[in-house]
């Protein structure tokens, strides 16, 4: 119940940040437009842009709620209800964004396996929401968190795909599934990518919940003794 209310109100709050929302929605598009002539590069850049946009938006939403969360806990809400509800909302926004851009590449690009571009973008959006939340939990200042997400996205884009560094970054799943989408090859790319995304999602969600459990813990006092 609390989680659904938090999710609903978080989504409403985000929808009212018109300028931020416009930038978030358009950011992956600029990534895409920069190399629209190359199907592979543009689709990969677009997907990474979705990850960056959704994680950054989640970071700002998490930071904006910092003052209200302890009061909600005192009023009776559980950490899972508060954080889970917020993640639900941001994941929903990410999924909508991913579906929209899947439609764009469907009409604008000639990909080897177009259907797999959907899971590629969706898994990126699913990972991005808890990643933004985790970074927001670790780095309370918005600028610090935004720079950290910029670093993660940049390293993911620039790291050698054959090396270990690229594979331990959170958006490696997009790169892996992207191999199947753009270059064809074995469907194992898709399964490996989804598995990487699933593990990353679990780590980010568990990390977020653990940090917020600690940060929003309430001291349990005994009740006063009756006379």
């Amino acid at each position: 119940m609390t989680a659904l209310v938090v999710a609903n109100l978080s989504a409403r709050e985000v929808s009212r940040r018109r300028a931020a929302l416009l930038l978030v929605v358009s950011l992956p598009f600029w990534f895409y437009l920069a190399r629209r002539d190359l199907s592979g590069q543009s689709t990969r850049a677009l997907t990474l842009g979705i990850g960056w946009a959704v994680s950054t938006l989640t970071l700002f939403v998490v930071n904006a709620s910092r003052g209200v969360d302890p009061r909600l806990r005192l009023t009776g809400a559980s950490v899972l209800g508060i954080i889970g509800g917020r993640l639900l909302a941001m994941t929903g926004i990410g999924v909508l964004l991913a579906l929209g851009y899947w439609g764009l590449v469907a009409v604008d690009q000639d990909l080897f396996h177009l259907w797999a571009a959907g899971p590629m973008m969706l898994i990126t959006a699913l990972v991005a929401a808890p990643l933004g939340s985790l970074i927001g939990a670790i780095l309370p200042r918005e600028l610090d968190g935004a720079l950290a997400l910029l670093c993660i996205s940049s390293v993911q884009m620039l790291a050698d795909p054959a090396g270990l560094l690229a594979k331990v970054m959170p958006f490696w799943s997009a790169r892996e599934v992207g191999n199947y989408v753009v270059d064809g090859g074995s469907i194992d790319f898709v399964w490996r990518g989804l598995a990487h995304g699933g593990v990353t999602w679990l780590i980010c969600v568990a990390g977020t919940l653990a940090i917020f459990h600690w940060r929003l813990r309430l001291v349990r006092y005994p009740e006063p003794e009756l006379p």
Partner: peptide, 13 residues
């Protein structure tokens, strides 16, 4: 019930 000196609300709601 706790009422802080400032903050404690969500700006967009």
């Amino acid at each position: 019930g706790f009422v802080p000196q400032d903050g404690g609300t969500v700006g967009g709601l």
